[in-house]
């Protein structure tokens, strides 16, 4: 468990979300992200997915509810969830390209990103997006520049219904529980997310993984193979030296090879 000075987080109440998407606009505005061209796909949901210039997005999950009107929406605010056990930070090969802010968010430095796309391919929530224009990844950084100055992230500031609540992580959890929340998505997942949800239905109905985990192959790669390399190579070199010391070189003497 990583310890932070003051863990800041979001508690998102999807039931309060009206999908006005003020958060999407505020995010674009603060981060000065360009508009992206999309097409009408027969849904109010837009853009279709998070991309290098859309750090956050309201996902419209549509379900029939049996009435004549026939539809029920489950809105999900998609963004980086700022895991404590962050897969992206585990796999990143470049020092400082992905880093932890003092408040607990996972921010990125595009100048240090080498575009290997490891994080894009392994994030359990498929959050980091790679831009072919900049050759780097980008994602939500929880407005760490605003947080460092005591302001709330842009999306939370813009939310008119109070669906995005920003504050100290412990207090947010206590508050949600006091209001009767049974399951807080993100309280314990991946050692605790810094963006949590009070869901009204099961996570998969919202399009969230039910049991998010660091992929098995990443665990194998970084927790088993990496130490194997760290110890295996020096020990092999040592074994070779030991062999040379014990047995010495194998000299072929003149004439010896001639015996047949």
């Amino acid at each position: 468990m990583v310890e932070f000075k003051t863990q800041k987080a979001f508690m998102i109440y999807p039931e309060k979300c009206t999908a006005c998407r003020a958060c999407q606009v505020a995010c674009k505005n603060w981060n000065q992200l360009p508009a992206t061209k999309t097409i009408n796909r027969g849904t109010f949901e837009n853009p279709p997915d998070m991309d290098p210039f859309n750090y956050t997005k309201i996902k419209f999950n549509e379900y029939g509810n049996g009435s004549d009107y026939g539809i029920k929406w489950l809105f999900l605010k998609q963004q980086c969830l700022h895991c404590t056990e962050a897969t992206c930070m585990i796999v990143c090969p470049s020092n400082g390209a992905l880093y932890r802010t003092p408040e607990g968010a996972v921010a990125f430095n595009p100048e240090k990103c080498i575009g290997c796309k490891y994080c894009v391919m392994t994030c359990p929530f498929e959050v980091p997006k790679f831009s072919e224009d900049t050759k780097t990844i980008s994602k939500c950084h929880l407005c760490h520049d605003r947080m460092a100055n005591g302001l709330s992230p842009a999306c939370a500031k813009a939310c008119p219904t109070g669906a995005i609540v920003y504050g100290d992580r412990d207090k947010l959890i206590a508050e949600a529980k006091a209001q009767g929340a049974q399951n807080i998505y993100g309280e314990n997942e991946l050692d605790g997310l810094h963006v949590m949800y009070v869901l009204a239905d099961s996570p998969d109905k919202y399009g969230l993984p039910v049991n998010p985990k660091v992929p098995m192959t990443v665990v194998l790669w970084k927790r088993f193979i990496k130490p194997l390399v760290k110890w295996g190579i020096p020990l092999t070199a040592l074994a070779v030296l030991l062999h040379f010391w014990l047995h010495g070189p194998h000299v072929v003497s003149e004439g010896k090879g001639g015996e047949k």
Partner: peptide
């Protein structure tokens, strides 16, 4: 990802052994 790391590791071990047997261990 893990297969790349593992095979690179195996290659590095082979490299050490092969380099040793091909040089100091067998002069000439």
């Amino acid at each position: 990802y893990p297969l790349h790391a593992l095979s690179a590791f195996m290659f590095a071990l082979g490299f050490i052994g092969h380099g040793y047997l091909g040089s100091w261990a067998n002069p000439g």
